[in-house]
Amino acid sequence: MKIVCRCEDITEDDILRAIDEYGCTTLAELKQVLRLGMGHCQGRTCLLIAAKILARKTGKGLEEIIPSLRPPDVAVEVGMMGGCDEK
C-alpha cells in the first residue's frame, strides 16, 4: 500500500479509484472527493505526488493540474488572528 496523503490517510489506490469512479481529471476534484491535501499540512507533500499520478493517468501536463493555493500558508491560531481586532 502506498500512502500519498498522510494527513487525510489517502493511498495511491484511493486516488486511482477516484479517477475511475468519479472521472476526476484535476486535483481540485480529487480534493472534493477524497479530501486530498485538505489536512494539516495543506498538501505540501501529497499534491505533487497526486498531480503526477493524474498526469500519468490522464496524459495531461503537470502545469494543467497544479491548483491555486489558499491562504494562510501555515496554520495560525484563531486567538492570535483575532487578537489583532480585540477592543
Binding site: 495543506q42 491562504p71 491560531e77 486567538g79
Partner: peptide, 15 residues
C-alpha cells in the same frame, strides 16, 4: 473567539 472562546487555541488551515 468571541462566540466560542475555546476555539481561540485551534489552528486555521485554509480560507
Amino acid at each position: 473567539g468571541r462566540y466560542a472562546p475555546p476555539l481561540k487555541h485551534i489552528n486555521i488551515l485554509r480560507q
